[in-house]
Design a protein around this nucleic acid. Structure first.
Length: 155
DNA sequence: GCCAACGTTGGC
DNA sequence: GCCAACGTTGGC
């Protein structure tokens, strides 16, 4: 594994876009992020090949559903300029885009969902983890290598 | 569907 | 720059 490689967790509502959808399409532009901190992770810190935990949020069984990877350099989210899109941002100018994204590529589905409940039960072992912080709403967040490995071991 | 948490907006 | 109002996220 490349030195300095970062690990990530990205949330998606499975009714909108699930790990099965990602498997079907292979690679997906991660459109619609409208939070500056999440954007900055994609714009400034992600590298092609970084591993991504694909997390199902706002559903009956929230948890990590599979594995993906960063598949592109950052580029402007096209939906910000699309008047028809829910993600249209009239304040963003094409010559100075406000919202950036990366493509995410399917790697594999987990045999089963590693649930949020399980992660909470192992909060002590996982250590400081943005996903488990109270009230956390970030949809793109960093995961340490140790946390990443720990979560894989729970599958 | 409820609602706590939290980011953003905009009046001042 | 403060902060109340508002909208959204996401677990439950």
């Amino acid at each position: 594994m490349m030195a300095g490689m970062k690990h990530w967790l990205m949330k998606s509502e499975p009714e909108e876009f699930s790990i099965d959808d990602l498997e079907r399409v292979g690679t997906e532009p991660w459109t619609g992020v409208r939070n500056y901190q999440a954007r900055n992770f994609m714009l400034k810190e992600m590298r092609i090949g970084d591993p991504v935990l694909f997390y199902h949020s706002n559903c009956a069984q929230p948890g990590v559903a599979g594995l993906a990877e960063v598949a592109s350099e950052p580029y402007p989210d096209p939906t910000q300029f699309d008047r028809q899109s829910d993600y249209h941002d009239p304040g963003s100018k094409p010559e100075e885009p406000r919202w950036w994204l990366v493509d995410v590529r399917f790697v594999r589905r987990f045999r089963r969902v590693v649930t949020l409940e399980e992660l909470k039960a192992r909060a002590d072992a996982l250590g400081d983890f943005a996903l488990l912080r109270r009230g956390n709403r970030l949809s793109v967040l960093p995961v340490s290598k140790a946390q990443f490995r720990h979560i894989l071991s729970l599958e």
